[in-house]
């Protein structure tokens, strides 16, 4: 455990140092401007403390972000519109819906592509093209179309945007995984006169599981990004994406940074959970620990 933690902590330390240095450098402009306007001069030693506690810093230093994050998580009732727990939950809910939708869609497409050659030729190119369209451009359109169709809930278009990003890694990995059994393994089932269904359930699907779980880690991160992007456009009121937008629009960098870190922490937790599920599945499938 200690061997693992040390390199991570070392890198973290370096990042914090660089961050503080950058905060001093970027926020010093404001300090010098203020001094000039007041007709005074500030020494370097006087300037540094003043870069650490500005209300609207260009780059908030780590402790300010941490304080804002703490205020957002622990300083409010979780039902408050200022609570990051509340917004985080909204984003989490959207992510889970998109993630689930993405998995179902990705797996279903992979199965049909592996089963029907015509699907591979017709659908696969479009799946690839779909990922070249910037989601930021597409998200408002999906929201508008959903609105036109009379879907008032923001959850549905958000889940669609999220699924749009998360289905792809699942699809690509599952196609690879379902095709991973070699000729000998397929021949073996042929000697048992196994049906196509039996080949799928007993060989192709279990063989694809390592690929599936590897893709889930990518997919859950993509689903989170999709959800946040879905929360950004017009009229967003809930979710971490909305918090980031509000922070940026109202010139409150602290709110934006706190939301950003909340999103990063959420992403980390999601990947941890997916990793734990993967471990459980691996153990059940007899992989050496």
């Amino acid at each position: 455990m200690r061997e693992k933690a040390l390199p991570v902590l070392a890198v973290l330390g370096i990042i914090v140092v660089i961050w503080y240095a950058a905060a001093v450098w970027m926020n010093s402009t404001w300090v010098y401007d203020q001094a000039e306007r007041a007709g005074t001069t500030v020494s370097f030693a006087e300037m540094v403390p003043q870069t650490m506690a500005q209300e609207r810093p260009l780059l908030p230093p780590p402790h300010q972000v941490a304080a804002e994050l703490w205020k957002g998580v622990a300083g409010q009732a979780v039902t408050s519109k200022r609570s990051l727990v509340y917004h985080g939950f909204v984003t989490f809910r959207g992510t889970m819906m998109g993630f689930a939708l993405g998995i179902v869609f990705g797996v279903a497409m992979a199965v049909s592509i592996v089963r029907f050659r015509v699907m591979e030729m017709s659908v696969m190119p479009w799946a690839i093209i779909s990922q070249t369209i910037p989601i930021v451009a597409l998200a408002p359109m999906i929201l508008t179309v959903a609105n036109q169709l009379g879907i008032d809930s923001r959850e549905v278009p958000k889940a669609i945007i999220s699924a749009y990003l998360s289905f792809f890694p699942v699809l690509v990995s599952m196609v690879k995984g379902l095709r991973s059994p070699d000729a000998m393994q397929l021949d073996l089932l042929k000697t048992y006169n196994a049906s196509e269904g039996e080949t799928f359930w007993k060989l192709r699907l279990p063989a694809s599981m390592p690929y599936f779980f590897a893709s889930l880690k990518v997919a859950v991160a993509a689903a989170l990004i999709g959800t946040i992007v879905g929360e950004l456009p017009t009229g967003a009121i809930e979710g971490l994406g909305a918090r980031m937008l509000i922070g940026s629009q109202f010139g409150e960098p602290l709110i934006m940074w706190a939301a950003l870190f909340a999103a990063a922490i959420l992403a980390g937790l999601l990947i941890l959970v997916v990793g734990a599920v993967e471990q459980m599945a691996r153990r059940r499938m007899g992989v050496p620990a």
Binding site: M184, Q185, D187, L188, L189, T191, Y192, N193, A194, E198, K202, L203, P206, A207, M209, M285, G286, V287
Partner: peptide, 27 residues
């Protein structure tokens, strides 16, 4: 007939008993 290939080709996700059960399940 039963066929034995060059490689054992056991399914890594099944136990030895589970692997032997494979043809039996299918049949």
């Amino acid at each position: 007939y039963g066929y034995v290939f060059q490689a054992a080709g056991l399914y890594p996700w099944r136990t030895i008993a589970g692997n032997i059960a494979l043809p039996l399940e299918i049949m």
